[in-house]
């Protein structure tokens, strides 16, 4: 049994907790309620809901909670202390953990995106299917990116407090149109959703920068873990 599969298996088991499901349900309910209100305000409800509550608030919080749970609210290098003691490769375990977090957060991103679009557009809207497909894709990428960044941030601070610091920085700096927004997933996700891009970047460039940065920080974080 490889360390990767052990890390994946154990992380998925850690996520299977009633609080995780409750958190996702609350996030989806919040997104749907906001989408209904936005719909009453007039056209552009889907955009406002997705850039506001869904991918701005609910997805980062849900991803933070999932990654915290996979880390058992500890630092990344201590998340699998017991299995590492029995001879599992701690880097392999962390990669497995990241894979589990990517899968779960990606699925949550897709789900939140789809329910938000459904609620904001209504089933009668002719552009519904196309918008659902586009939002589901962006949601999956956004969830996966947040999972990687939170895993990487978990390797900083006592009990992985870097996760929370990263969330605050993402909220404050990621939503600006300055160059600093390039360093955070939020700016790129907003760009993909059609909001004002940081430094006028094209969506394709945002995808490339986001993917590159995500792999870089994740690689650095995992290389910091002793084998």
């Amino acid at each position: 049994m490889s360390s990767f599969s052990v890390g994946l298996n154990v992380s998925l088991r850690r996520v299977q907790h009633p609080l995780s499901f409750t958190g996702v349900f609350v996030a989806a309910t919040l997104a749907v309620i906001v989408a209904f209100f936005e719909r009453r305000l007039g056209p552009g409800a889907a955009d406002r809901t997705l850039t506001g509550v869904t991918f701005g608030l609910a997805l980062p919080l849900a991803s933070l909670s999932i990654v915290s749970r996979t880390c058992r609210t500890l630092r990344l290098d201590n998340a699998f202390l017991e299995l590492g003691r029995h001879g599992a490769d701690r880097r392999g375990l962390a990669i497995g953990q990241t894979a589990a977090a990517i899968a779960v957060c990606g699925a949550i991103g897709t789900f939140l995106g789809v329910v938000s679009v459904l609620a904001a557009r209504g089933v009668q809207d002719p552009r519904l299917l196309r918008d659902i497909w586009a939002t589901a894709t962006i949601g999956a990428w956004a969830g996966a990116a947040y999972a990687c960044w939170f895993v990487a941030a978990s390797s900083f601070g006592k009990r992985g407090v870097g996760r929370t610091v990263f969330l605050v920085l993402d909220w404050t700096l990621g939503s600006s149109a300055s160059a600093l927004a390039l360093l955070f997933p939020r700016g790129h996700i907003l760009n993909l959703l059609g909001a004002s891009p940081p430094l006028g970047l094209a969506p394709a460039a945002s995808i490339a920068i986001l993917a590159g940065l995500t792999f870089l920080v994740l690689g650095l974080a995992i290389s910091r873990i002793p084998r």
Partner: peptide, 23 residues
Amino acid sequence: PHRSPALRRKLGCAYSDLPFEEK
């Protein structure tokens, strides 16, 4: 030992026991 998983496989440890996560 902190750098070698192969070595840790040959170490028997029973201290500060952490709970099992399997069902």
